[in-house]
Simulated assay, not measured.
Amino acid sequence: MGLSRDLIDIRTIYHEPAVTEFPRGREILDRFPDARRIEVPSHWNIPALHGNAGSVEDWVRIKRSTLVLGVKKGLAMRPNGRSAHFIAPSTSNGCAMACAYCYVPRRKGFANPISLFVNVEAVCAAIRRHAERQGPLPEPDSVDPALWVYDLGENGDLSVDAAISDTVRDLVSLFRTLPNAKASFATKAVNRDLLAYDPQGKTRIRFSLMPERIARVVDVRTSPMQERIAAIDDFVAAGYEVHLNFSPVILYEGWEADWAELFAAIDDGLGAAAKAQVKAEIIMLTHNADLHAVNLGWHPKAEELLWRPEIQEAKVSQGGGANLRYRTGWKGRWLARFTALLAERLPYCSVRYAF
């Protein structure tokens, strides 16, 4: 089964004029024939959504019921080196889920529903050209032992996007045909429709996991942890490489006990095939003053966990944003404690990277 109408029930579609010129654009519009259509000059320029502080009160309703369709302009690959070698051009932006720590609203405004880009053929062609230019991976590295890895879902969640269009299926199919490349995306949703996509080992799904008690506060509208863990064996059997994304690691009184409990649930839930291929990435929480202000308008309880100035410090991100992270020195100690706990409880799960 796919995803429920509780997560997505599209009633309004904002779209750029050119969307109807693309087969994928027409397919999506046909899929929601009763939705109200509003033409806009740009998917980035929708005053009713972007930068409208009044939308905070309607945060979840907008995410459930609103869809934005546009045409992707930039098709460049960006070097990465952490989760992937390259960040591919996004086929989406925004999400139907509402995680309180998500960085995308920092750039996009208050309400941040899914935006889908309908020129998927151009995106796939750009990825193919780029992969062909790379040749074989020169040597194994922390990203992958054999293949160039392209992150597909930097600004959204492809498991959710797949409930709206066939773009994710198209991307999985593309990487099946690229001998030197592999796709990768992180997800907080279990969409079992993806089990039929036949990835043949060429798509890596990173299931994001955190202690359930904390997820109930900050992982708003996502699949429960036990459902994510229960899906891992099935996705491995379906031909996916499945890694774990421990993200974000949030510090609070009792965090180590909660993570130990989660690691025990993972160990109990994974079969031999999943354990033999699983790896992890660890990402400590980064927060942001502007997002803090937004969250106070719709979900102040989350900020009790996320906004901890007594143990955080200002940091300018790679993108130039002013963020908060756990204090240097202390962050290293906490990260060392986390990795030691992981090694003790899940000794077969090596860490690809941590920061």
Rank of each mutant, 00 (worst) to 15 (best):
P199Y: 01
Y150R: 06
S142K: 15
Q200G: 00
P113V: 09
R221I: 02
R216Y: 02
F185R: 07
S165P: 09
A162C: 10
D219L: 03
I232L: 11
N191E: 08
Y150I: 02
A125M: 09
S159N: 06
A181T: 01
D198H: 10
H130R: 06
A181R: 13
T222P: 04
R128W: 10
L158N: 04
V218N: 08
D233Y: 00
P224N: 14
E121V: 06
I205T: 12
L209T: 07
E227I: 01
G201A: 09
S184N: 14
F207T: 07
L195C: 13
L195I: 01
L147V: 11
M210T: 11
R206D: 07
D166R: 14
S223G: 00
D157K: 04
V218T: 15
G135A: 13
R192E: 05
P136A: 02
A146K: 07
D234Q: 13
A183N: 08
D141L: 04
D161E: 14
R133E: 14
V218M: 08
L244C: 15
R213I: 06
S173Q: 06
V120D: 06
T203K: 10
S159D: 04
D144L: 08
I229D: 12
P179T: 13
R129Q: 14
A196R: 15
N119Y: 00
D170Y: 09
A196I: 10
A196T: 15
K188N: 07
R228D: 09
E154A: 05
V236F: 09
A196H: 14
G156M: 02
F117W: 04
V242I: 12
V172I: 13
L194S: 12
P136T: 01
L174T: 10
H130S: 05
Q226M: 14
V160W: 10
Q134Y: 04
N245S: 14
P113Y: 03
T187W: 05
E227P: 10
Y197I: 02
T187P: 08
A126G: 03
W148C: 03
A186Y: 00
D219T: 10
Y150E: 04
C124A: 08
F207E: 00
T203Q: 03
A231N: 02
L194G: 15
S115T: 15
D233I: 12
A125F: 11
P138N: 01
L174G: 11
V143N: 10
L209W: 01
V190D: 07
V172C: 01
L244W: 02
A230N: 06
H243S: 12
S184I: 04
T177Q: 07
V143D: 11
A163W: 12
R169G: 07
R129W: 08
H130T: 05
P113S: 15
L171N: 05
S159V: 11
R228G: 05
R133K: 13
D151G: 09
A237H: 04
R133N: 11
V120S: 11
T222H: 06
E212D: 15
F235H: 13
W148H: 12
Y197K: 00
R216E: 06
A126M: 10
